[in-house]
Each structure stands twice: as structure tokens, then as C-alpha cells.
Design a protein around this nucleic acid. Structure first.
Lengths: 212, 212
DNA sequence: ATCGTAATAACACGGCCGTGTCAGTTAAAG
DNA sequence: CTTTAACTGACACGGCCGTGTTATTACGAT
């Protein structure tokens, strides 16, 4: 019969282009015509793979999510083994801050995902949010003097110590604020200032057992 | 000669319409045609008062700034006199959080201003940022056990106690993060949760003198 | 080699946008 | 009342957008 095209492969290809546009112009820049042009196709052709703009943007957000997972998780898991506890945890938390060009790119992707989820709330709650909270929970647990490594699926659930749970939330919120200040008022909050503030907050986390 | 129109008054009138549009559709919704239509004039007429869209949006941002000053400052200054120190300070800080419809409106205006300043960085640094920092500085000073009221121009300058300065920055960042989480992930961070987290952070501020 | 359908691309329609032009209107100064 | 410049609004141009329609192409099964 007619020639067959690997739809999933084409969508992935177009998704990559869309992510590139998100980085350059934000989610609103992902238009049917724009993506088609940058990918080198006509809009009529693109619309065989995405019925409308909504589908295109939804797919782009999905690609962005996968990209972040692939980029950020390995960096977080490759934990630093030297330095004080605060220093090691700070290094992990800094992976969520737009301190350099690469992480600034990632922050733009985060923002696009958040913008999308705000306008199209996922029924089961944001997955990325749960992941982040689990990360901070684990950071605070270590900082408090608890076991340094818990099973991943354990970190997804609340920590038995309410103080850990509380400070995980505080840290999560603080890092979010720090990230937004870095991009929105770079003249007021530099990368160095942010790094310093982060460590100061980590110092304030109450310890169950003395520093290790 | 020809009839005369109070230009400043017209601009203010159009600015109000523009702010209404910012609340409804964001800064990008402030278009020459849109504002003219909502104000009941033609675009050609509007453009006697604003040469182009840039001028119109810049003016709208200015009006938004003035509106916020007029709305938020009085609420902050009418400080609560009952309850613990933490409770009183929390009430002040909560004025910066989008906890109800009114303050959610104000948050949208803040966001529009920040967006504008990010794309058109003011040379002298953001005025609104300095104002906010001064507020948190004063809050933390009281919380630490310092004098409850300093001269306004004193609050603009750094506090002599470095710890006050540090925790003012931490609190500022935290409240920013809390605000963004409330609007971006309302399903994860409710108004109640935010209020609770805020108080928890305030409890963690180190005291110079015992609670008063 | 032929056929039929997926794939492709060109085009049109309607919408919103910023901006420039220009003739008509208004009202204050003379 | 006449003059005159500010004011007004209608219109056009070009651009970008989403989307629907339609003709053409390409290719695998027959």
C-alpha cells in the first residue's frame, strides 16, 4: 500500500525542534507554523502527526520532562563524597538552581512545564513535584543525621520524622524561591549570593544527631 | 486654538484599562487594539497618547506598580498588635502571599512587573525589590528582638547585625518561593499549608534577645 | 506495472496584531 | 466668525497565527 512512516519517530523529531523553540522563545513560541518551518516541513505535513497546536505543545512538554529527567537525575545521583554534610547536600540542591548556562536552560524547561500544568492541571497531581519533594526529603534526612540512603520508593512517601518532612518542604520552597530570584532579579541575586544563601539555610536545619 | 485634552488624565484612564487587562490576560494581553477597544476608542486615537505598544505597556507597568504600593503598604503598616511576635510578623509577610482573591490579583500584577523588568532591566536596580527587602529586614529585626520600629530610610540600608541581614534575605527568598508554589501548584501547596510553613520558618529565625 | 492510500505541500479563510496614513471634526484663540 | 492645530477614527498594509481543503506525490502490496 502506501509508504509508511514511523509516526513515533517523527513525533520525537518534531518534539526536539519544539523543545529548542521553548528554550529560545518559551512555550508560546511553539506554533504549528513555527515548528514546521524549523523542522523543514509544511504545516499540512506536520498536522499528520499532531492534529492541532494543543497536541503539539503537550508533546513538547512531555519531551521537555523526559529531557530534564535524563539530564538532572544523573547529576543528582552522582553525589559528591567530599566536604561537610552541608557542602554535599548543597551541591545536590544546586543542581536545581539556574547557576550556569546549562541549568538556566533546564530552568526554562521547568518553567514551561509548570506553565503548561497550571493551564492544564494533570488529574493525578504533578509527577515532577513529587519527585522534587522526594529529593529534598532525602537531603534533609541526611542533613538531620538519618540514614544517608533510603530506597527510592521510600523517599516518595513522607518521612517518619515530622521535622524532616517539615524542613523538606521549607527547603523545597526556598530553592524554588532562589531559582526564581536568580532569573528574575539577577542584578540583585547573583549565583554566588544564591550559593551562599542556600548553605546558610542548610546550616539552619535542626540536627537529630550531631554532624557526621 | 484646538481643543485641549488633559493628556496625563487620558493616559491614566487608559492605564487603568490596561491594568484590568493584565489581571485578565497578563502583560502580553496589553495590545494597542485591545486597550483601545476596551476603553471605547479607536487605535488611532489611543496612539495620540502612546506612540507605540512599548510605551503603552511601560505605562501600564507603572500604573500597576503604583496600584500595588497604594494597596499593599497600608495593609502592611496597619500591623497587628495582638498575638505572639511570630504571629504578628507572619501576618505582615502574608500580605505578600496570594492567599485570597485580592492578593492573588496583586500577585499577577507583581508577576507582570517582574516580567517587564526582566525584559527591560531598569538601570538603577528594581525599586520594588529594595522596598520588599526593607520590609523583610524590618520583620526579621523585630523577630530577632531588636527595636520594633526603625526609621523607614534606615530600613532601606543594611541592618548592622549581619544575622538580621542574612535572615531577611532567607525570608525574602522563602516568601517568593511560597508565592510561586501557591499559584503554580495549588493542588500541592494550599493557603493553609503556606501559612503553616511560613510560621515554621519564622520560628527558625535565631533570636538575639528572648521573645518579647 | 498498476493501484490505492498514506504522506506531503500548497493554498485559502478568518482572526488578531502593530503601525502608518489621512480626511474629517472639534474647540479655543484671534 | 474665522482660523488653526489638536484630536479623532476609519482604513490599509504587512505579518503571524490556527485550521480546513485539496491536489499531488510516493511507495508498498498486489
Amino acid at each position: 500500500m502506501p509508504r509508511l512512516v514511523d509516526h513515533e519517530r517523527r513525533r520525537a523529531e518534531l518534539g526536539e525542534v519544539a523543545v529548542r523553540i521553548i528554550l529560545r522563545e518559551g512555550l508560546a513560541g511553539v506554533t504549528v507554523r513555527g515548528v514546521a518551518a524549523e523542522a523543514g516541513w509544511s504545516t499540512g505535513s506536520l498536522r499528520h502527526y499532531f492534529g492541532n497546536q494543543h497536541e503539539l505543545q503537550a508533546y513538547a512538554v512531555q519531551v521537555a520532562t523526559d529531557t530534564l529527567r535524563r539530564r538532572v537525575l544523573p547529576r543528582v545521583q552522582r553525589t559528591r563524597t567530599q566536604g561537610s554534610v552541608v557542602e554535599r547536600i548543597a551541591t545536590i540542591a544546586e543542581e536545581m538552581l539556574p547557576l550556569d548556562a546549562e541549568r538556566r536552560e533546564e530552568y526554562v524547561l521547568w518553567s514551561a512545564i509548570v506553565e503548561w500544568e497550571r493551564r492544564h492541571p494533570p488529574e493525578g497531581g504533578s509527577v515532577s513535584w513529587g519527585d522534587q519533594r522526594a529529593l529534598y526529603r532525602q537531603c534533609v534526612a541526611v542533613l538531620c543525621g538519618y540514614e544517608s540512603i533510603r530506597e527510592p520508593d521510600q523517599a516518595t512517601r513522607p518521612h517518619p520524622d515530622a521535622r524532616v518532612e517539615l524542613w523538606a518542604a521549607l527547603l523545597h520552597t526556598f530553592v524554588d524561591g532562589l531559582a526564581s530570584q536568580i532569573v528574575n532579579t539577577p542584578g540583585e541575586v547573583s549565583a554566588e549570593t544564591a550559593a551562599r544563601l542556600l548553605r546558610s539555610l542548610l546550616e539552619a536545619v535542626p540536627r537529630v544527631r550531631p554532624d557526621r
